[in-house]
């Protein structure tokens, strides 16, 4: 494995047990950092607004990204469209700390994701199942997150995706070695990664939860299921009291297994973001189905 890839996986390890927050300007970035975020995701509109406004969602203006980088000392991430390797080149030129090749933006390529091995900067990618996670890792992703269903404030898809990945991993672990090639074919993942997962019982990179996390309880739920940390998108700055909610989610991720702390931090947070039911979404409105 090359050294750069190792260093990029290592940065994700430093984010474990932490919360990565979506921010749309320098002021929000400062609030997130002060509340204890381990990193911020710089974007022009949070997923809930992308959902509401429609149209093509693209990489953010470099000016905005620069302002956010100036404002905080924690790592700054930003999103590119699936397959849009030029947006990724631009973010690399800006020395972003992590690129999210994200289904929340409008895909630029329906067949190919970015060849992430060509980049020095690390990538995080979304996945709904193990095959998808391993395809992204084979392309060079050094961190995985569930896709969930961003901008809905509904955690059900993140839970589904994480449970799917974990149960597929357990299934590989029980297989005799000769069945692993068949499994690799079935889930559409490279054999060497399937074998590695069967041996270790976990993904070879850090695995975060994302897409629909809106409350401290949601965050702790994902941690108890076994996630390494959480991304919170619209959940914070679309709620009534972002500062308080951000702090509460940070605490909930650290003390995820202590219901007393969870009860304490969940109290009096004001209204959470408005939530959407997944089955009421039109199939074209489901971000999770973008990419493969």
């Amino acid at each position: 494995m090359n050294e750069r890839y190792q260093l990029n996986k290592n940065l994700a390890q430093m984010l474990k047990g932490g919360v990565i927050m979506d921010v749309v300007n320098a002021e929000q970035a400062k609030i997130a950092e002060k509340a204890g975020a381990v990193a911020v995701m710089a974007l022009e509109r949070v997923p809930a607004d992308i959902r509401k406004h429609g149209g093509v969602a693209r990489m953010s203006d470099p000016k905005l990204i620069k302002e956010i980088k100036e404002a905080v000392s924690i790592p700054v991430m930003a999103k590119v469209r699936i397959g849009h390797f030029v947006e990724a080149q631009i973010l690399e030129a800006l020395e972003i700390d992590y690129i999210d090749e994200s289904e929340v933006l409008t895909p630029a390529d329906e067949n190919c994701h970015i060849d992430k091995t060509k980049f020095k900067v690390p990538f995080v990618c979304g996945a709904k199942n193990l095959g998808e996670a391993l395809r992204r890792i084979a392309e060079g992703a050094s961190m995985i997150r569930t896709k969930g269903e961003a901008g809905t404030g509904n955690v059900v898809e993140a839970v589904r995706h994480f449970r799917t990945i974990m149960s597929e991993i357990r299934r590989l672990q029980t297989m005799p070695e000769e069945e692993l090639m068949t499994a690799a074919k079935e889930i559409g993942a490279p054999y060497h990664l399937v074998k590695l997962v069967a041996e270790n019982g976990k993904l070879p990179v850090v695995n975060f939860a994302a897409g629909g996390i809106a409350t401290p309880a949601d965050a702790a739920l994902m941690m108890q299921l076994g996630c390494d940390g959480v991304f919170v998108g619209s959940g914070i700055f679309k709620s009534a009291n972002p500062e308080k909610r951000a702090q509460a989610i940070v605490k909930a991720v650290t003390y995820y297994d202590d219901p007393k702390v969870l009860a304490e931090v969940s109290e009096d947070l004001g209204e959470a973001m408005y939530g959407l039911e997944i089955d009421k979404l039109d199939s074209k409105e489901r971000f999770g189905d973008r990419g493969w």
Partner: peptide, 14 residues
Amino acid sequence: PGGESTTMGKLLRD
């Protein structure tokens, strides 16, 4: 350990 000092510093205080 390694991680984000601002995050750990805040939790140590809280």
